[in-house]
């Protein structure tokens, strides 16, 4: 079974250091929630692991099943089993969801192997039914003119189709009303209930999401690293007390 190890990771954007010594191991099927105030490096972490060209990993390593992914291009990382659910998914006019997903599925097949279109659509429709997505959706251009909720459901549909080993979910709850949030969470929970559930890194700002997707671990990220870890109760504590006490603890710890 697959696991992700993030070892003493340092990430910069240009000259600016954002993530400073991040450590975490995600075992198969585990859900780790990362919480923390704005600007603390949560999204940077997710995008850099997925290989976004704007981010430079200056030191440390990211291993999937013991193999470093850092020398890989973004598409290779994805085919190896990493998946990033975007906070702001790109709109791609003129490319239908059906064609886009077929290209992604085909990219995972051996050279010269033909995609079985019937089996592909059967699988796609099963996943769409699971996510309560209308079948007409497949003819629409990827994220083009989608509502916030549709975009996020489209992300989860891709995750369900591509069956990653590790999913990095970046603020999947942002921009969602409570009904949309519930549908998205149900989709994620259905994936978790599958035969080979991925390990999930769930980045969120709000405890609210964790009522629906219950994490195995909660970590607080601040100033580019994890400063506190606990179980789901930590999220409730953060919700009640805010982040100030974490910041104070961190200041005291680094001062000493």
């Amino acid at each position: 079974m697959s696991q992700l190890e993030i070892k003493d990771l340092h990430i910069s954007i240009g000259e600016k250091s954002i993530v400073k010594g991040f450590n975490l191991t995600i075992k198969p099927g585990e859900v780790h929630a990362i919480m923390g105030p704005n600007g603390t490096g949560k999204s940077t972490l997710a995008k850099a692991i997925a290989g976004h060209p704007d981010y430079t990993i200056t030191s440390g390593d990211v291993l999937l099943d013991g193999q470093s992914v850092l020398a890989m291009e973004p598409d290779e990382r994805a085919r190896t089993g990493l998946f990033l659910a975007f906070q702001y998914p790109s709109e791609i006019p003129g490319v239908s969801i059906a064609n886009f997903l077929r290209a992604a599925v085909q990219a995972r097949m051996a050279e010269g192997e033909e995609l079985d279109a019937t089996a592909y659509y059967k699988r796609l429709y099963t996943k769409m039914d699971m996510l309560k997505i209308d079948r007409k959706f497949t003819a629409r251009a990827v994220n083009d003119g989608f509502s916030g909720g549709e975009k996020k459901r489209c992300e989860i549909l891709q995750m369900a189709m591509l069956e990653p080993k590790i999913a990095l979910m970046d603020e999947t709850d942002s921009g969602l009303d409570i009904d949309a949030l519930r549908i998205v969470a149900e989709g994620v929970n259905a994936i978790r209930a599958g035969a080979q559930p991925p390990g999930i890194l769930l980045i969120t700002h709000y405890q609210r999401l964790l009522d629906y997707i219950v994490p195995d671990f909660v970590h607080v990220m601040y100033a580019g690293r994890i400063v506190k870890s606990g179980d789901k109760h930590l999220a409730l504590e953060l919700e009640a007390k805010g982040y100030d006490w974490v910041k104070k603890e961190f200041a005291a710890a680094t001062a000493s």
């Binding site: 290989g51 291009e73 973004p74 598409d75 994805a78 790109s90 886009f100 990219a107 891709q158």
Partner: peptide
């Protein structure tokens, strides 16, 4: 957009 597609495993 390019990164989005590549992040799904689609070759450049």
């Amino acid at each position: 957009q390019e990164f989005y597609l590549e992040s799904r495993g689609i070759k450049p």
